[in-house]
Design a protein around this nucleic acid. Structure first.
Length: 852
RNA sequence: GGGCGAUUAGCUCAGUGGUAGAGCAAUUCGUUUACACCGAAAAGGUCGGGGGUUCGAAUCCCUCAUCGCCCACCA
């Protein structure tokens, strides 16, 4: 057995241990067990962006998954944690375009094929970075099954999905208003928009007989409808369809009155004009009433010829000029400069969204949502914490159709083939074929593939089954679908989780996972978002480097609870966890030096019993996903009970053999949380097998009240002696004589631990001191002086006052409980009261004796 | 506008009706069969404010305040 260094140095072990695990095949599910019919435990890694690097959110999420996975593996379940990456269409697209720009070229210049080649090269270069970072953290994924959303098979699954949805009529092409981002030249889904508050002047203009307010005069060129609420008394004399002439920006217009109940009568004048092509609610009104629509703004955010003299200007240029012109025409009534409204920005790149009416591909959600709502309602998919269930159902019930195509080159190209020259024209109808493979020949001539690609989430939605081989009926798919639990962040509940559920239900006919575990958001300690620009970011790899992977994991778990929506991350927690790891290390080091003796003490029974209790509780807690609580319980048990009490006792009496056996169980219990150090120590104490593959089996817990009682007396006597020593100012080095009126458990050990000598008879010169478990002990030391007695008296008064307060409250409780509470509870309180009264008496007695 | 969460010791947080807790920091003491990344002791809190229910509230209810997040988006 090699000697352990005085301190645990993670760097000396983590790399080797990880290699051992990986080489042993422990990361792969045990297929034998699957064949025997054992239910597998399966987790899909939410695929990180291939462009990404590990941040604290990942570290938290990966640790949670790894703990669950390691625990289930130890419980003897065939366990699969499937890793992979997402192609991250938008961020990668931007990176490649920037690279091309730096080289003085553009994507148009190099062409689509070359562009795709470049992205593939780039993927190969950066590919595994984040997965390798996960390995540093100890993630026990089955790397032989690593998947990427651009794998050939995965691409096939995406195409098959599109085809399947199309055949069922769930995918349609239609002219709808979409969120267009002129900056990145693509559409964006509703979920990927951020709103920013901005102060914008709110202009009120005269429009025929009406006053209308707008913050966007630059969109108003083509407005020819005024809308008001049908119940608005102010405008009751106008009828739907009435027309009137109004002088407007570029001359006289004929406007029509429309009544619609979606209007807010209390806003402004209660009348507005609409711009259906560039405003979502206006579009809805126009559709409802079958009104004309006209495009005002082009796809670069510039005004079209309809704007007359303003054509070609950007919106920001045009706005003040138009307001000025209307003012000169005498149509400007007022300007509210303090008006605040929300500006829609693209999450990625922060381009200002300019709604446009475009022909796009949509997924019709009306049918798909039904079953998804059902599985949430009947808990076939459980949300943890369950408060998210209602949110989820609410959102699902109000879900809009999903715009799935994007105007970028990077991603999964739509399996749609257009008769040459028809895409994007007015002759689209009937001129396309949806097919995984390109249509061959045909009398109609050549086809060309739709230029657009699919929303990244369209492919991510297939993750739980496309990774397992769907649409083929592979063995993996049969064995490992549905998966057990999805661990994810709140922010992608709709974006991703919802879409996986309806995709799984629709395509594989079962839910993709049973439980959805939603973890808190990691914030900086001051409550700010972690970000590089704010300087609040913490790099988990720096933490691993400085404190070790185990400490990083354990520190995070120690701080975490699923009940929180956010956790303010304190790096001190990682440092504390490092100290804990070192403590564990040194316990092992001490046990090495302990020579065998063939005796047992009650402390041995006690620690075995406590370990069994903790094992039982940790098992229960993990089963309820209470990982933070389990971590805290383990640390408390190992540090306070095992190290501070039991190890001190076993130095002096008892069975080193039992000490080692309990320690081995501790390593097992702690392994899911701190895999590296526990594995190192497991090897060190002479195990040939790997801890990662050991079994989660422990002694059955049975409570021995007599043992507990003796340990309690022992601990309280030792504590009393320590207090007394300080109170009476007795030097730590000198031995104190004591006499107790009752038998002391583990007397020899107690003498050594508390530096006392137990004498057989009470001497007159002894001073009394109360023990919290009841009774007094008597002690003598030459060092007790008049002054220290006075000090002791004062302290005892303080303690007596506290006990008196407790007694009063207990008496209160008992007197009011008499009639209502159950007898058992009453007895418990009565017992507590009599204990307290005894303690108070002991203190009063000892105080009196001190005065003597 | 709607919703969710948080508010407990200097800091980060446990604590779901019955004697207010942990870790870290700060204080004092201490090298003893591993660990000073340690041990021991002592200190620190009218549980965000107000009201209510109850014999009894950090805990349940109402209300207000502050902070954070999510959803919707109204000219």
């Amino acid at each position: 057995m090699t000697e352990l260094s005085a301190q645990y140095s993670p760097k000396d072990h983590e790399g080797d241990i990880y290699k051992k695990w990986d080489a042993s095949g422990a990361f792969q599910p045990n297929e034998e067990l699957v064949k025997q019919g054992k239910k597998p435990f399966v987790v899909m890694l939410p695929p990180p962006n291939i462009t990404g690097v590990l941040h604290m959110g990942h570290a938290l999420q990966d640790t949670i998954m790894d703990i669950l996975v390691r625990w289930h593996r130890m419980k003897g379940e065939p366990t699969l944690w499937m890793p992979g990456m997402d192609h991250a269409a938008l961020p990668t697209n931007k990176i490649i375009i920037d690279q091309l720009y730096a080289e003085g070229t553009t994507k148009e210049e190099i062409g689509r094929d070359e562009f795709i080649k470049r992205t593939q090269q780039w993927y190969e270069k950066t590919g595994p970075l984040i997965l390798n970072q996960m390995k540093r953290l100890g993630a026990s994924c089955d790397w032989t099954r690593t998947r990427f959303t651009m794998d050939t098979k995965y691409v096939h699954a995406v195409n098959e999905t599109f085809l399947a949805y199309y055949k069922k009529g769930y995918i349609y092409r239609g002219a709808r208003i979409v969120n267009w981002d002129p900056k990145t030249q693509t559409t964006v889904s509703d979920l990927e928009i951020d709103y920013k508050k901005e102060k914008t002047p709110l202009y009120t203009f005269q429009y025929g007989p009406f006053e209308i307010s707008t913050s966007r005069p630059e969109t108003k060129f083509g407005d020819k409808y005024v809308v008001m609420h049908p119940d608005d008394a102010r405008y009751a004399h106008y009828k739907e369809g009435d027309t009137f002439q109004a002088p407007w920006i570029n001359g006289e217009v004929t406007a029509t009155v429309i009544k619609d109940d979606s209007l807010d009568m209390n806003f402004g004048t209660g009348v507005m004009t609409i711009t259906p092509w560039h405003d979502i609610t206006d579009f809805e009104i126009a559709q409802k009433h079958n009104l004309d629509m006209e495009q005002i703004i082009d796809f670069n955010g510039k005004l079209l010829p309809i704007a007359g003299e303003f054509a070609g200007m950007t919106l920001t240029e045009a706005r003040p000029k138009i307001a000025e012109k209307l003012e000169k025409m005498g149509l400007l009534i007022s300007v509210d400069k303090k008006y605040e409204h929300n500006v829609a920005l693209n999450d990625r790149g922060k381009g200002v969204i300019e709604p446009q009416v475009m022909r796009q591909w949509f997924v019709d959600m009306s049918k798909l949502k039904e079953e998804t709502i059902q599985v949430a309602k009947n808990n076939k998919v459980r949300f943890i914490p369950d408060r998210w269930k209602e949110h989820f159902i609410d959102w699902m019930e109000n879900v809009h159709d999903w715009n799935i195509n994007r105007q970028i080159w990077l991603g999964h190209r739509l399996p749609v083939w257009w008769k040459k020259g028809t895409h994007g024209t007015d002759h689209e109808e009937g001129n396309f074929i949806v097919s995984v493979d390109p249509p061959t020949g045909g009398p109609e001539g050549e086809y060309e593939q739709d230029p657009d690609t699919l929303d990244t989430w369209f492919s991510s939605a297939l993750w739980p089954f496309a990774t397992l081989g769907w649409p083929e009926e592979t063995a993996d798919l049969k064995q490992y679908y549905p998966t057990s639990v999805l661990v994810t962040a709140r922010e992608i509940l709709y974006l991703w989780v919802a879409r996986m559920i309806f995709s799984g239900l629709e395509l594989v006919r079962d839910v993709p996972f049973r439980d959805v575990l939603i973890h808190p958001v990691v914030l900086a300690k001051n409550g700010q978002r972690m970000s590089k620009s704010l300087g609040t970011g913490v790099d988990p790899l720096d933490l691993i480097e400085a404190h070790g992977a185990d400490a990083t994991r354990f520190g995070l778990m120690h701080q975490m609870s699923f009940d929180m929506q956010q956790m303010k991350f304190d790096p001190e927690a990682i440092k504390a966890a490092q100290n804990f790891a070192n403590k564990l290390w040194n316990i092992a080091r001490f046990l090495d030096t302990l020579e065998d003796r063939s005796e047992e003490s009650i402390a041995d029974s006690w620690i075995q019993q406590e370990c069994a209790r903790v094992a039982k509780e940790v098992t229960t807690l993990l089963g309820e996903y209470k990982i933070g609580e389990a971590a805290r319980l383990l640390q408390d048990f190992i540090w306070s009970d095992f190290a501070d009490w039991y190890v001190e006792i076993v130095k002096r009496e008892g069975s080193p053999k039992i000490a080692r056996a309990v320690f081995a169980n501790i390593l097992k219990l702690l392994h899911p949380f701190m895999p590296f150090i526990t594995e190192v120590l497991w090897q060190h104490i002479g195990n040939n097998d790997l801890l990662i593959r050991s079994s989660w089996e422990f002694e059955k817990y049975t409570e021995h009240k007599d043992v507990n009682e003796k340990i309690y007396v022992f601990q309280s006597v030792v504590a009393a002696l320590r207090s007394a020593r300080i109170l009476f100012g007795i030097n730590m080095a000198s031995t104190v004589q004591i006499y107790a009126e009752y038998s002391l458990p583990m007397q020899k050990t107690l003498e050594s631990l508390a530096k006392v000598q137990v004498v057989a008879e009470k001497k007159d010169s002894m001073r009394s001191y109360p023990v919290s478990s009841g009774g007094v002990i008597w002690l003598f030391s030459d060092e007790i002086t008049e002054e220290s007695i006075a000090h002791g008296q004062a302290k005892l008064d303080v303690r007596a006052a506290k006990i008196q307060a407790t007694i009063r409250s207990l008496e209160n409780i008992i007197s009011t409980m008499q009639s209502k509470a159950p007898e058992e509870k009453l007895q418990e309180k009565k017992q507590q009261l009599s204990d307290m009264q005894q303690q108070l008496k002991d203190i009063q007695d000892s105080r009196a004796l001190l005065v003597l």
